[in-house]
Amino acid sequence: MHSSVGKVLIFALPVVVIAWFWATALMERRRLGSLAPLGFVQRNGVAVATYLVLAVALWAVVMIVLPQLFMVDLSFRPKLPPPQVGGEKDVYTLANYRYFLFGSATDTSSWNTTHLQAFGLTIVASVLITAFNFALCYPLAFHMAKAAPAARVRLLMLLLIAPYWVNEILRAFAFRILLGSGGVLNQALLGLGLIAEPIDFLGLDVGLYAGLSYAYLLLMIFPLYNAIESLDTNQIEAARDLGAPWWHIHLFVVMPHAKPGIASGCTLVFMLTAGALAAPLVLSGPRTLWFTPIVYDRFYQAFNWPQGAAYAFILLIACIVFVLTVMRLGRLTLGEITR
């Protein structure tokens, strides 16, 4: 019975969502009456319209909605050998979430410190890396959008984009080579006589944080650049003419205008950093435990898919909460961020 609830949820929900959109569109049409612009169907014919709607719906359902719903459903089930799946032991349970909190599916006497710490570290470090990314990218984005001549903007863009043609794993290994105990940086410092013996950058997690900070830099730069570029330069000059020092102009003229760009850059970088896998796997020191490798281990080391699903779901919820908080703090709507 319980599993049929899950199936109903998985298959009925998308239909409900599509029906809901359809109904609102119909209502809008009715309200606007003959003022409504010529519809997509009238312009392209029923066949094309039907195909498009079905194709998009199918893509959305099969590629996005179904897997996620499946994972959520899975996270509330026990780990069972295949013959028992769907059997009478396959009941909804909070055991996987309990394991995250207490390190045991049944005992709740002690906390699962390893995983909770990793989770906390991941969230806090992602927030800090996001802030660092913002601090790094804002001046550059402002320079490119408002100060640099066109030729320099093109050059900077190229310099920013080119490294990202190299894939993520390779970039992470490049950081290892750069920061390893026999790496370029240590050799240079040794050669200059600044240090007596190599510094263990990777063990100190310098590599991890550097790699993570670099990994999603572009996703901060571009929203910021676009947002600042659309600001009328005269507004900056007007503020200056009225006596404002530079920091005041940035704080009260440029940033309020660029708020949607700042929010979308920050949420993107936060989500991707918190969910990054390659950089933590390659660059983590021996002591650090980033949360994503733990999730990965649930699936492929412990072969406990339900638990992995629960862990992934916890991370997703944390990210969504973060985004909603940022939006609330900035008094932004989803429409503004995605503009």
């Binding site: 005269n234 507004q235 000059e237 003419d241």
Partner: peptide
Amino acid sequence: NARPTALIFQNLALF
């Protein structure tokens, strides 16, 4: 910002 003048821009440039 250090001159006793105020400029009104061609496009006004209100905030």
